[in-house]
Simulated scan of single mutants.
Amino acid sequence: MPGNTTTVIDDASKESGEPDVTVGKIDHYENIAISDWMDKETIIISKENEDLGKMSLEELSDSYPKSLYLYHLNTKQYDLLTRSR
């Protein structure tokens, strides 16, 4: 989210004066949960799968079931890995 700050506390950086961690850029992704990295350009995500139709339970009836996807950061394409029902 814009305006948020992440602080890394590392006692080792006090000795050298240089932080061990740097952030080049932060990208914001809507409505997905990133769970792991496959490689530098591909992540595993969980997001709603609209192909499955909305859920039938009343309290979840406005939601779609979630599925796992490979998301390619360079092309912004999704590849379905698995789906749950």
Results as ranks from 00 to 15, higher is better:
Met1Asn: 15
Met1Ser: 08
Pro2Leu: 06
Pro2Tyr: 01
Pro2Ser: 13
Gly3Glu: 02
Gly3Val: 05
Asn4Cys: 07
Thr5Tyr: 02
Thr5Ala: 01
Thr6Ala: 15
Thr6Glu: 05
Thr6Cys: 03
Thr7Arg: 07
Val8Lys: 05
Ile9Val: 14
Asp10Leu: 00
Asp11Arg: 11
Asp11Thr: 15
Ala12Glu: 13
Ser13Asn: 07
Ser13Pro: 09
Lys14Pro: 00
Glu15Gln: 13
Glu15Asn: 08
Glu15Arg: 14
Ser16Val: 07
Ser16Asn: 07
Ser16Ala: 01
Gly17His: 09
Gly17Ser: 10
Pro19Asp: 06
Asp20Arg: 05
Asp20His: 10
Val21Lys: 12
Thr22His: 04
Thr22Asp: 08
Gly24Lys: 10
Lys25Gly: 03
Lys25Val: 08
Lys25Phe: 13
Ile26Lys: 01
Asp27Phe: 07
His28Ile: 12
Tyr29Cys: 04
Glu30Leu: 07
Asn31Phe: 12
Ile32Trp: 02
Ala33His: 14
Ile34Tyr: 02
Ile34Asp: 10
Ile34Phe: 06
Ile34His: 09
Ser35Ala: 11
Ser35Phe: 14
Asp36Phe: 07
Trp37Ala: 15
Trp37Gly: 02
Trp37Arg: 11
Trp37Lys: 12
Met38Val: 15
Asp39Glu: 07
Asp39Ile: 09
Lys40Phe: 03
Glu41Ser: 15
Thr42Glu: 15
Ile43His: 08
Ile43Gly: 06
Ile43Cys: 12
Ile45Asp: 07
Ile45Pro: 01
Ile45Tyr: 00
Ser46Trp: 12
Lys47Ser: 05
Lys47Val: 09
Glu48Trp: 01
Glu48Cys: 01
Glu50Lys: 14
Glu50Tyr: 04
Asp51His: 00
Asp51Gly: 02
Asp51Thr: 10
Leu52Trp: 06
Gly53Tyr: 06
Gly53Lys: 01
Gly53Trp: 05
Gly53His: 04
Gly53Gln: 05
Gly53Leu: 03
Lys54Arg: 11
Lys54Asn: 01
Met55Lys: 14
Ser56Leu: 12
Glu58Arg: 01
Glu58Asp: 14
Glu59Leu: 11
Glu59Phe: 11
Leu60Ser: 12
Ser61Lys: 15
Asp62Asn: 15
Ser63Leu: 15
Ser63Cys: 07
Tyr64Phe: 13
Tyr64Thr: 05
Tyr64His: 09
Pro65Phe: 00
Pro65Asn: 08
Ser67Tyr: 00
Leu68Phe: 15
Leu68Lys: 10
Leu68Trp: 04
Leu68His: 12
Leu70Asp: 06
Leu70Thr: 13
Leu70Ala: 12
Leu70Tyr: 15
Tyr71Leu: 12
His72Arg: 14
His72Leu: 05
Leu73Ile: 09
Leu73Gln: 00
Asn74Cys: 00
Asn74Tyr: 03
Thr75Met: 04
Thr75Pro: 06
Thr75His: 04
Lys76Arg: 11
Lys76Gln: 11
Lys76His: 09
Tyr78Pro: 00
Asp79Gly: 02
Leu80His: 08
Thr82Tyr: 00
Arg83Tyr: 03
Arg83Met: 07
Arg83Thr: 06
Arg83Pro: 01
Arg83Ile: 03
Arg83Val: 03
Arg85Asp: 15
Arg85Lys: 13
Arg85Pro: 02
